[in-house]
Design a protein around this nucleic acid. Structure first.
Lengths: 212, 212, 212, 212
DNA sequence: AATGAATGAGTTTTCATTCAT
DNA sequence: AATGAATGAAAACTCATTCAT
């Protein structure tokens, strides 16, 4: 099935996946309407079912595309090269915030994977995304230790996990009312919402605390 | 509308909310079937619409009930009284794990609130649940400082936030395939899944790290 | 599921089954349109799915109703009581011809069961209808032998089978262009179609031949 | 339209008709999928619509090809030449059973023509197939009378019709669950299905009975 | 001549909500 | 107050046919 899809001109593929990302992220898997995705992508209903076996298969492809995208545009871009651990983390957080200017939809997609209703997708998708993130944080911490920026006594697994939690929840706050309110509840004032830049600063400080 | 509901015998109220919690948590808000909730609750379809204006209103009441329940059965039960900070945290984690061992459904409900598709509910529900948790952690840290268990230089907001993230994600791992896999990906081995007790131990150690 | 259906007023049940019989017989199972059946029956789409689990289940109920109907209105009515074997057979053929004045639709339903595409229904439905017919013919032949109308040397199974084939194909010719043409091809003239009464006469003669 | 088809190399024609026969026979006309036929035939969707105006036209050609095939491979092969009436009938029945042992698909095609949903095709197709069969049986009976194997008092039309019914229903039992069950219901035991050879023997005996 | 991607109307089934009893 | 039958819009998916290449 996907073979037909892969034969399409890249811009068309991109348009379809982008439409699917938008609708799935905004409405959630079950509420997302296949016909709406088609309209958004500018293709007919029938065409979509030539490219993908069914809604599930479209969702999985969309999600996997999101992982690759996130990896290429956010993680890989900032991992390699010089710069201190915290500079890199700052760039990562900026990357997350800017990435998916179309409302950080890949992250919304990622968040939904955690829900009980999506357990059936977790088997296929969880490992892919988690491996990528974990490897990145391990590498970062290893480098930091080599450069004497991070104390060698720090336990890599624990630190990586805490940082990942922390960054995830920062990312969630970019699209989720709930996580945004929660962030404000801890660090903001009622009257004024925290800016993204401020959230990044706080997240960075929290990460420093974890790594200290 | 809810006035009619509140006039019902408490056991009947309980039965309805319990049925709604089960179905909403298992399937998610949109996939949850009102008729199924009625059957589970042993009432007629028509009756439900006498008690609640619509599905949204039922959901909000169910969620709010979950918050109160969580507060009474988990937080308040372990906050008051003697015991060291870590003893209390251990009891709290045990409480979360055992609470609703009928599948930790209130937590699944809470998780789903974070999804973009649920943004419209966040306005009403987020604050309620977050205030409760934050207050609890503030109190715990304050006490810890008084008892000299926690260093006075620790920033209360940051520590509370990190602990909350950490405990939330532990809680998610109790019902979500994705968060369970993620936990195992960091701390487990491929062959054997981490037991709940082991997860509690790890979470406690992570919390200690945060508070040090 | 059917329990809801059985609770309906008998006239309404009748109307639904009658509508289903009509559409299934006219179009065949796969071409039959559930929405059209609903319109014909004067009920909503949703209602039908309260009464029957799905299209298959509606079909099976419709078919089984047809068997009972055929049994009561055609077979049982003419089996009991006095009369010679051929008088009874004549009445049976008349019964088949008149029965289902609404175009002998139950018979069309029965015919379709023979098609390869309907093999999956045969397991449930074949035995029911065949047992009824076979028992009837066995009884008829037994009586005929007792009354010395049929020679005792006649093999009951073979005779019953041939009669059944013969009567089936007469019945098919009442609704099927193909079997009507075939009948005319053997016994009619090109210019004028055989009347039903003439077909009955021929079928009766053929049966006599079989039983001689 | 068919002119284009007739210009194709015979093997390609054969492959297309063979694919269509398979799919039409297995699924029935309405359930048969044009795209599936194309895949099976190894041609493109577009090509098929160059050769045939539409699905109906393809069906008619397929059916007509089936008639010719049946005539050549089954009827004509066994009609001419020496041999007693019953030897010829035995060979005919063996021929039907072996013919298209790739599932006796032409016969399934022929059966479906009897359904009410196919009435619109009967006008074109019925006569063709019925004439062939009737002529064959007439010839056989005539020869039999000449050879004094069949009593001259036997009515040719009636006997031919009964034999045709009988042989048709034997043929149906080769692919139809329903007619197979029916056959077993009369002549078999519950535990063991009748073999094809046994069915042939019974059909032959029934034919003898008809001709006696 | 041949391809095979694209179309879009049509089909079965679900489900929140209403309302007569 | 309570019931539960009824509604009908909506949603996923199919498929004969067309047409640009």
């Amino acid at each position: 099935m996907q073979s037909t899809f892969k034969k399409l001109p890249p811009e068309k593929q991109e348009k379809i996946i982008s439409a699917a990302t938008k609708i799935f992220a905004d409405k959630g898997y079950y509420q997302a309407n296949v016909a709406e995705i088609c309209t958004e992508a500018g293709i007919s209903n029938g065409a979509l079912y030539k490219y993908f076996k069914d809604k599930e298969s479209l969702y999985i492809s969309t999600f996997e595309h999101g992982i690759i995208d996130l990896k290429e545009k956010v993680f890989e871009r900032h991992l390699v090269g010089p710069g201190s651990t915290y500079e890199k983390l700052y760039i990562l957080l900026k990357g997350i915030a800017n990435y998916g200017h179309k409302d950080r939809r890949e992250i919304a997609l990622y968040f939904d994977l955690g829900s009980r209703a999506m357990n059936k997708f977790a088997a296929v998708l969880s490992v892919q995304i988690e491996d990528m993130a974990r490897n990145y944080y391990f590498e970062l911490i290893k480098e930091g230790k080599q450069n004497n920026e991070i104390d060698k006594s720090v336990n890599t697994e624990k630190a990586a996990y805490l940082i990942d939690n922390n960054i995830n929840i920062f990312a969630f706050s970019l699209f989720s009312e709930h996580y945004d309110k929660r962030f404000n509840n801890y660090f903001g004032s009622n009257s004024k919402k925290l800016s993204v830049e401020k959230k990044i600063q706080i997240t960075l400080e929290l990460t420093k605390k974890i790594l200290s």
